Simulated scan of single mutants.
Amino acid sequence: MTTIDYSAFDTPGRGRGLLDVFRYGYLLRLLIGKSTSVRYRNSVLGWFWSYVRPTVQFLVYFLVVGQVLGMHRNVEAFPLYLFSGIVVVNLFNEAFGAATRSIVENKALVRKIYLPRELFPIAAITGSFIHFLPQLAILLVVCVFLFGWVPSLLSVGLALGGLALILAFILGLGLFFSAFNVRFRDASNMVEIVRTVATWASPILYTWVMVADITRDIPWIFHLYMCNPVTIAVELFHHAFWQPAVDPSDWLGWPPAMGWYIAAACGIIVVVNVVGQYVFRRAERTFAQDL
């Protein structure tokens, strides 16, 4: 009787979740290349849209909030303050939406072959990050040539820390909502609401000091506001790019207990990723049937 060694084979449909992504690096690169090449296919301006859209958004906010509502009088170098926050929120909104749609948009692959389903939201997030880089490049040019910003280890570390926080947060949310979106297409509408809230509930059109003043009698609201990972990432970007460009007398400073807020945001990110991975693993069993 012939004995077959099955040790080199995996049971179909059984994987190790996010850990399997490292084993399928080639497929991940293919999916990332697909997402970046398809994004502006048959577009006249192509990649130039990555510069046009954030520039128009910045101009609208600057003219309405900065000039009409007078925020430029309350915040020194308000254009830089505004833009350094907008790029973070744009990354969150773009990557979160792309990750949520990733499974449904790749339903042909999901129904035909097995591969770690986590590859799809991760590829979507990575593709959005690639399209975020032109905005970051514009921010760096503005900082250096218009405001005399000189990079330091501290500013670079703060910027990288902000990126790490926001990308980790997006990953957890993306896993959860991409799985939810396969069964219930209402997820897309929920994501739009979250993206709208993220834009206005982060200190890009105003400062954290204003929130602290309004919530002085109910401080728990301010604590909850500051524990938001998007808020923390925006503040880290402000201190990386905006703070070095303004006079020390105009610096807002760190919010009180900022270390605890960062720790709370990291805790929220860990919980969101654990829950997102759990829900994703449970839901992926029926992805092919639901699609």
Score class of each variant (00 low, 15 high):
1 M>T: 13
1 M>G: 12
2 T>R: 11
4 I>Q: 13
12 P>H: 09
19 L>R: 14
19 L>S: 11
20 D>P: 03
22 F>N: 01
25 G>Q: 04
27 L>G: 05
33 G>A: 07
34 K>W: 06
39 R>H: 13
42 N>T: 07
46 G>S: 08
53 R>S: 07
58 F>Y: 05
65 V>T: 02
76 E>W: 01
79 P>D: 12
83 F>M: 09
86 I>E: 14
87 V>W: 05
93 N>G: 11
96 F>M: 15
97 G>K: 07
103 I>F: 08
107 K>R: 14
111 R>T: 13
112 K>S: 15
126 T>D: 00
127 G>V: 03
134 P>V: 04
140 L>E: 01
140 L>W: 01
148 G>A: 13
152 S>R: 12
153 L>C: 02
161 G>K: 08
164 A>M: 03
165 L>W: 06
171 L>F: 06
172 G>D: 00
172 G>E: 00
173 L>D: 02
181 N>F: 04
181 N>M: 05
188 S>R: 09
191 V>R: 03
194 V>Q: 05
198 A>V: 11
198 A>D: 09
206 Y>C: 10
208 W>H: 12
209 V>E: 14
209 V>G: 00
211 V>M: 08
214 I>M: 04
220 W>Y: 12
222 F>W: 01
232 I>L: 12
234 V>F: 00
235 E>H: 08
236 L>V: 03
238 H>N: 08
241 F>Q: 10
246 V>L: 09
247 D>A: 06
248 P>H: 03
254 W>I: 03
255 P>G: 11
259 G>K: 11
260 W>T: 02
261 Y>R: 10
269 I>N: 07
270 V>A: 12
274 V>Q: 11
277 Q>I: 11
280 F>Q: 00
283 A>Q: 13
289 Q>W: 06
289 Q>S: 14
291 L>R: 04
